Simulated scan of single mutants.
Amino acid sequence: MLEVSLNIALIVMSMSILVCFIRIVKGPTMSDRIVALDTIGITLIGVIGIIMVIQNTLAYAEVILVIAILAFIGTIALAKFIEGGVIFDRDRN
């Protein structure tokens, strides 16, 4: 029963990633695209977590950590780019 529930969860999360990808392509604003990209990262972490439970292993724990860090840094960088247009501030004196 658990196996069936996990497979259903994987299917639903895959559809969620597809819907978010459509939002990235067609999003009316840049903010919508950034939120959809962040949602894909979070959903991908959940998918990998479910795969870890199905395979009964901890082999992908580092992958989850790397994806989480990259998603966070990417979201912060894109938000800063939207706010000011520049990611790295270079003050030249």
Rank of each mutant, 00 (worst) to 15 (best):
L10T: 08
L44E: 10
I67A: 08
I22T: 10
R90D: 11
E83Y: 14
L18M: 10
T75V: 02
T43K: 07
V86R: 15
I54C: 06
L6H: 12
M13P: 00
F72Q: 08
T43P: 03
G27S: 05
E62Y: 07
A36R: 11
A61M: 06
T75Y: 10
L37G: 13
G46Q: 15
M30G: 08
D91W: 03
V25D: 00
I42A: 06
N93G: 05
I48V: 13
V66D: 00
G74K: 09
T57W: 01
A9P: 06
V19A: 13
M1E: 05
A79R: 11
I45T: 10
Y60M: 07
S5V: 01
R33Y: 04
Y60T: 08
K26Y: 10
M15D: 07
I67P: 03
F88T: 13
G46N: 15
G41I: 02
N93T: 01
I69Q: 00
D91R: 14
V25Q: 02
I64A: 12
V4H: 05
R33N: 03
R92E: 00
N93E: 04
L70M: 15
L78R: 05
S5T: 04
V25A: 06
I34R: 08
F88N: 13
I76T: 08
V12N: 02
N7K: 15
L78K: 06
D32S: 13
L6N: 09
I69D: 02
N7P: 00
L18F: 14
M1S: 04
A71F: 03
G74N: 13
L37A: 14
R90V: 15
I48E: 01
G85P: 09
I73H: 05
M52P: 04
E62M: 07
F21K: 00
M1C: 01
S31E: 11
I51N: 05
T39Q: 04
M52Q: 15
N56F: 02
P28D: 06
G74L: 06
